[in-house]
Design a protein around this nucleic acid. Structure first.
Lengths: 343, 343
DNA sequence: GCGGGTTTTGCATGCGCATGCAATAAAAAA
DNA sequence: TTTTTTATTGCATGCGCATGCAAAACCCGC
């Protein structure tokens, strides 16, 4: 009935806003806004007064409101299939670390489906993401369309795309295969095999091309190809098939380190093969484990940090000029020679 | 000069808004809002008309604006130290997958510093996150304070906390150690060792307690303790120390699978020990690799899915009742017996 | 101490959506 | 058909912040 009742009715503590800070500091709300906007026109003394008031209240700017007003969310959507793969986890880690330096953050969309487009990704548009970065997945034509219409760039890491609006950054896939083949040839191997990822992986396909074509140039045509499905166990099965074949390979190139580990273990434990004497193995990625003494894997590197950096650089360019065509960049890698190949 | 000039001046294509949809559908903006709000009062025919118009325009609701109006962002901040660790990657994956079912998404904060509080986490407050979930990190007193003030719950996965406002969910750490010890004892082992994580990890400490106390009850006091720093290489070094000692162990319990892998590899390759005859090994976590034939590791499981589920459940409870005290839950695990221990 | 120039400030408004309230249309009851 | 009840709608406003514009405060040199 009385006034008190009204003011007391349920003390929900709201987060302080600019207006609260303004009141305490004795300035206008817009002054507070300017105090927190880099480069805005505001007197030094005023800003300090405001900062002090803000600290006193425990004020945190509401970035969602800011985004609404500025039309820039500083949110980057990251679509990632199988985070469990250390290589992609590393890419995610790198992206996150590098983005934070420009005040941006990652909205995570995981998916367990490899190489297929997650319908949930439309949500990134609803969250007003400034860009979408995809790893180990591809954007469908339809998704790309929607993002283009919204002016939100898409960058794929490690997957090729024929879609006009989609930028891509990848490692030197063809060269990886080529270099692996050359290295094996130099060490006088005779029987070659390739453990591919999945059938639809463009990445795996490019590596295979580089490998096979280089071997073909040296008159080696009978290269066994098996699929490891980009998993440890898948590769282990593929390896069993290889070693049980009538003509077991003495040189195996794997489309990923992870698969190489699977092959390596099967070779050692189930077939008692000596590495690199009986069989040599080369992977791709150079994940941290590759350098562990347990694996000591020769591999063609695909530097996560560089991939992340390039992806972000593309994002920046596309945001700066939305009408720009898709950008396609290759990031250099190199053969890192370790104990899984002959000296 | 003429009117056309005004309307044509710079065709920046804005994303369509509810007002655009409303215009096309011939209804008010609020009707459109209601059409997209579950349970709102709106006629079926109207909604359909609106949905059609929305589809035609390619309308995506602006979730930031919605969050501003509803004071609920549906964003959950996830702080994760070393994503590269497959166990935590798995937890992240689980959280992401389970949260999406209730329409929530993860804002990712990675950190390479173990067990320390990342100052960047304040940003979660700015993004109006509905909650903060932390894995492999702990909230500082000060951070917890700020979140409590803002009414945003914090849940730590796999880290203990003495701070009042911080909820926690963890695996059966003490029991893991206890069960490991019992299993070793049953198999007649004589010389015991423990490979701990870091010195300040409460998780590692609990596991150690369970192990040591159980052994002590059986009159075994001289348990060697070494630190593996939760890394493969760290554990490998720890293992070298153990196997080179005057009394090398025949039973090693490791505070994580990952470290167990390091120990296992060193045992086999550098010391030519037969597992589990010469030395038996038990880990904790049950990461996917543990079941791979290469490792075939006996381990006390710490189910990522269950941890994630419990963390989310706590978040929900805390959001429903912000004044509630912190919740502490233990998630059951079990000893999964594989080839790294004697039959 | 004054005019013109330069900062610094506040005012007003809009970003896209949700929602209480009042107005209206539809349905049910009389 | 008229009245009452209920289901739909639109209006108006606010969420917290940024920003163009005009007013105010400050600066300088003369």
């Amino acid at each position: 009935m009385n006034k008190k009742k009204t003011t007391n009715k349920r003390k929900i503590r709201r987060a302080p806003t600019e207006s609260d800070v303004a009141r305490l500091a004795g300035v206008s709300q817009s002054a507070v806004s300017r105090a927190f906007t880099k480069g805005a026109s505001i007197a030094k003394a005023t800003r300090e007064k405001i900062i002090a008031a803000a600290r006193e209240l425990g004020y945190h700017p509401n970035l969602l409101a800011r985004s609404l007003a500025t039309r820039r969310s500083n949110i980057i959507a990251l679509a990632i299939a199988n985070l469990e793969n250390p290589f992609y986890a590393q890419v995610a880690q790198q992206l996150s670390a590098q983005l934070r330096e420009t005040g941006r953050h990652i909205l995570l969309f995981t998916s367990s489906i490899y190489d297929e487009t997650d319908p949930m990704l439309e949500r990134a548009l609803s969250y007003q993401a400034d860009a979408l970065i995809m790893t180990a997945t591809k954007a469908s034509e339809q998704l790309a369309d929607q993002f283009k219409k919204a002016g939100v760039p898409i960058v794929q890491i490690n997957r090729e795309s024929k879609i006009a609006g989609v930028s891509t950054v990848w490692g030197e896939n063809y060269r990886a295969g080529k270099v692996a083949a050359s290295h094996f040839l130099k060490k006088n191997h005779k029987n070659f095999a390739f453990v591919a990822g999945t059938k639809i992986s463009s990445t795996s396909h490019m590596r295979q091309q580089g490998y096979i074509e280089t071997l073909a140039k040296n008159n080696i045509k009978n290269v066994q190809i098996v699929y490891g499905e980009y998993s440890f166990e898948g590769a282990a099965n593929a390896a069993r098939k290889l070693f049980n074949s009538k003509n077991p390979p003495d040189a195996i190139f794997c489309a990923s380190d992870y698969m190489a580990f699977g092959v390596l273990e099967v070779a050692r434990r189930e077939f008692a093969l000596k590495i690199p004497i009986d069989v040599a193995i080369i992977g791709v990625d150079d994940v941290p484990e590759a350098s562990h003494s347990a694996y000591d894997l020769t591999t063609f590197s695909q530097p996560a940090a560089a991939l992340a950096k390039e992806a972000i650089s593309i994002v920046d360019k596309m945001i700066a000029n939305p009408n720009r065509r898709a950008i396609r960049t290759e990031v250099a890698g190199e053969l890192i020679i370790r104990g899984s190949t002959r000296r």
